[in-house]
Nucleic acid binder design. Structure first.
Lengths: 303, 303
DNA sequence: AGCATCCATGCACTCAGTGCATCGCTCCTT
DNA sequence: AAGGAGCGATGCACTGAGTGCATGGATGCT
């Protein structure tokens, strides 16, 4: 049994397809086939069930997948731990799409300046994918919004951030001095796909006020939501950090009067993995950024 | 990093010597040197400190040793778990020298009959070595006498066994109807090396009766103790199971009157490792043997 | 029926890992 | 002080495991 075999195996298991996995691994498909064959020969039974259009893990394969993952993570962490000089290394950050472009760039810039030898890798994905990646050691930490449904992960809250009402310029509510959450109930919403946790945050906040926002349209990007609001397709709620970067005058942001809707931004990581000094430094920077981001966010909301 | 490199590394770490390790691994010394060099190159620092007469682990090496051990054990167990058919496989048994030749052969014979496809490997060693081997996954279970000073190991008592007094035929105590433990205090003892736990068992038992046995001679084998007793070098105490196999009439065995000295035979194993069906079957056989061995032991003691 | 997709197999090649011979260093012995 | 033994490192040549290319064989889609 060789480590390459295990890496190959894991890729095939993930892709459920030899050809694609071979491409990912930058080897030829025959080489991959033979490598897996050899592994199966050694184990005395197949790890994949070859179906006509794809492959599936056998029982043995499922067991091997967990252990192979574990072994490779241990070795990777060991290597990191030994070579940890606090300066060079790799930090793989995951963030949800409604945070990434608004919060990360400044942190990344500062971090890259402070640690020029470090390699930063950013992955943008939905909460569930990020948490799985974090658990499996594919990323080192994830920046997302509460709630975080994950056992075995350490979660630290960074800051609470206001969700602002965004309106088309000609919307009747624009003229209002004070807007309460109940005031928006009659108006249709533009929301993100259900995969995005921001939709959950908004729905959850509305539910507390006993109404369900009616989505007339669902998009996959926050920028698209903003554009659709400008075109009067509906109203929406946008995190303060996204409002910061919005230079357009084709929409208007308003802070709610009374109890304001918020989301809490947090960082999650796998405490069972080795935490190199670079990682600890990165989390420290996230905490420092917290004050800044949270502060600006609120300030802007009041403006 | 390759698994072979880790295996090589562990062997060198254990032997503290490249040449010997190479012999163990059945590769040439240059090949081993280069393999380690490559490993060190990948880690960016040496794992061994080359001293003139031997090599020692560096800090990085110490860390790597633990992880490499862990990884190889996981993989070995995974393989065992996948290929576990309850019939074939390998069982590595360790036993202390004062149990091995008297208790194991019958168990091994029965087990080999019941599981002809299984491979049995027996290692005879002192308690501390066996426990370390068990923890590190070098053996699957260890048969020894209580107490077992090991955290992280599961211990199951098998049976309690009487320690018999063994005397030269012309010894004054031979004529006695009843011999109490205090009666042997004046006589010099022939004992095993201090490395053997039987010496501890005997010393501990005597200490409870407020005396320290005086050893005139120390040997490394129980058979040698028996022979020296025959030659009137002293008296000794011998486990009942060893008396069973002793056909000689050049020494006499006596059971103590009153509280009899005993030792408790137990089996220990590493519960964090995969327990293949063969292993479970082996332990089951040990338990069954318990009745037989314990029974015969006591019966003989009374005779 | 024809085509696309997917994994397995035949064949030739390359280079990483190995063994042999030897070097260089240190320590021990006389 | 000199010679020898022990130990790891290095030069060099070789071999075979792993790889890529081309292709086969099976299945499903249109």
């Amino acid at each position: 049994m060789e480590l390459d075999q295990l890496r190959y195996f894991l890729q095939v298991a993930q892709r459920q397809n030899f050809t694609r996995a071979a491409e990912d691994l930058a080897i030829s498909q025959p080489a991959l086939s033979r490598s897996i064959q050899k592994l199966e020969e050694e184990l005395g039974q197949p790890v994949f069930e070859r179906k006509t259009r794809s492959v599936a893990l056998t029982e043995a394969g499922t067991l091997l997948q967990a252990r192979a993952q574990q072994v490779l993570t241990i070795l990777e962490d060991t290597k990191a731990e030994i070579t940890d000089d606090g300066q060079s290394g790799r930090v793989r950050v995951g963030a949800i799409p409604t945070i990434a472009p608004y919060f990360l760039p400044e942190v990344l810039r500062q971090f890259a300046d402070a640690f020029p030898k470090a390699t930063l890798i950013v992955q943008e994905n939905t909460t569930d994918v990020l948490l799985r990646s974090c658990t499996q050691g594919e990323i080192d930490l994830a920046i997302l919004a509460l709630p975080v449904p994950a056992k075995y992960l350490e979660v630290e809250e960074l800051f609470e951030e206001e969700l602002l009402l965004v309106l088309p310029p000609e919307h009747p509510l624009v003229a209002r001095e004070r807007i309460r959450i109940s005031d928006v109930e009659p108006y249709p919403f533009v929301l993100l796909d259900e995969a995005h946790c921001l939709s959950d945050n908004i729905a959850s906040f509305c539910r507390q006020r006993s109404f369900q926002p009616v989505a007339v349209e669902r998009t996959s990007q926050l920028a698209m939501v903003q554009e659709l609001v400008s075109l009067s397709h509906g109203v929406s709620m946008i995190p303060a950090m996204a409002r910061q970067l919005d230079q357009s005058d084709r929409r208007v942001y308003r802070s709610f009067t009374g109890k304001k809707p918020t989301r809490t931004v947090a960082v999650a990581w796998n405490p069972y993995r080795f935490q190199c000094r670079l990682l600890i430094a990165f989390r420290e920077r996230l905490r420092r950024q917290r004050a800044a981001a949270g502060g600006t966010g609120s300030a802007s909301a009041k403006a």
